[in-house]
């Protein structure tokens, strides 16, 4: 076979970058935190009620950062309003739906939190259910917005929303555990949360990690048995250029080390549960990096 090399091609940018990957992480952690918040008031697990406001406020703060990030990421920040005007709104564009979700989700969380403060069980439950649906949808959308690009073969998989949701669940719990730990360090004894809640949440996180590993295995199978683009995408993009966020940050630091901690007696120690939680929260950001930037990388050379 004769040799062939590309000697000239126009240079192209990777269009979505760090900002978008941070946004995906924030939305995910927010959705995960909110699920914890709803345990007490929506699902009726009463021992989680003390955590409600801490989790809810964390979820709201995480999500309030998002509009700033995204608006300044636009080429024309003032025109963000076009995403909400009926004459401009494009029903087939995933981002158009995502904008609605990003607007509605924090509002529903605030209404829910208001009824929690007022101790109104009925309304807290109703708005909690609405907020959970919106929380899951908002994070589901982040998977979908990358998935619906047939040319980006590493992203174009129906597993994307599930991977994002699972990542959200575990990173949200991880973040909550870390916040509980910090809160317990700062507050006097009588105001501290019960550590058994942290251990229990770490247990939920472990189930999420196992499911996430299963999903990543499915994605791995699809790429290595896929088209030439997918095989090279996995071999070159993920295992070489994006090796750190893919293999080390997500797989090793974010999933396998926490899993080892959580299947051993270490999970019943404060240090074990907190270290595992911290690693998961950080590790999920690795997935956001390779998913967003890695998925677009190869085509920039085409």
């Amino acid at each position: 076979m004769e040799e062939s090399i590309v000697t000239y091609n126009a240079f192209h940018h990777v269009a979505w970058g760090t900002t978008i990957s941070v946004y995906f992480w924030l939305v995910g952690a927010s959705a995960g935190s909110f699920v914890i918040s709803s345990f007490g008031w929506v699902f009726g697990i009463k021992r989680y009620k003390p955590l409600t406001m801490t989790a809810s406020v964390t979820a709201i703060i995480m999500l309030l950062l998002v509009p700033f990030l995204l608006t300044w990421d636009l080429g024309k920040p003032v025109r963000f309003i076009y995403l909400l005007i009926p004459g401009y709104w494009h029903s087939t564009g995933p981002m158009a739906w995502g904008t609605l979700l990003i607007c509605l989700y924090p509002m529903s969380m605030m209404v829910y939190s208001y009824f929690v403060i007022k101790s109104n069980q009925t309304f807290a439950k109703v708005f909690g259910i609405v907020a959970i649906v919106l929380a899951l949808s908002t994070h589901w959308y982040t998977g979908v917005v990358m998935e619906l690009n047939p040319g980006r073969f590493l992203n174009h998989t129906a597993l994307a929303p599930l991977l994002f949701l699972t990542g959200a669940f575990i990173s949200g719990i991880g973040l909550m555990n870390v916040i509980v730990w910090i809160r317990n360090m700062l507050l006097p004894e009588e105001k501290r949360f019960d550590w058994t809640l942290v251990y229990e949440m770490a247990q939920f996180m472990m189930y999420g990690i196992v499911f996430d590993i299963f999903l990543l295995f499915l994605d791995f199978m699809q790429t290595i048995y896929g088209s030439q683009n997918e095989v090279i995408g996995h071999g070159v993009v993920l295992m070489q250029v994006f090796r750190f966020p893919y293999l080390w940050l997500e797989m090793v630091i974010g999933l396998f080390i926490p899993l080892i901690i959580l299947v051993t007696p270490l999970k019943r120690t404060k240090a074990g549960a907190i270290v595992a939680s911290l690693l998961v929260a950080v590790g999920v950001y690795g997935m956001r990096i390779w998913w967003v930037m890695g998925g677009q990388y190869l085509q920039s050379f085409y």
């Binding site: 126009a10 192209h12 940018h13 269009a15 979505w16 990421d73 636009l74 080429g75 024309k76 025109r79 963000f80 076009y82 995403l83 564009g93 981002m95 917005v145 990358m146 619906l148 690009n149 047939p150 040319g151 980006r152 677009q296 085509q299 920039s300 085409y302």
Partner: peptide, 18 residues
């Protein structure tokens, strides 16, 4: 155009630029 670059991500041919 709001400069969100969704179309650049969607285009399989690198035909768009900011």
């Amino acid at each position: 155009c709001i400069g969100c670059r969704t179309c650049m991500v969607a285009c399989p041919y690198n035909a768009r630029h900011l």
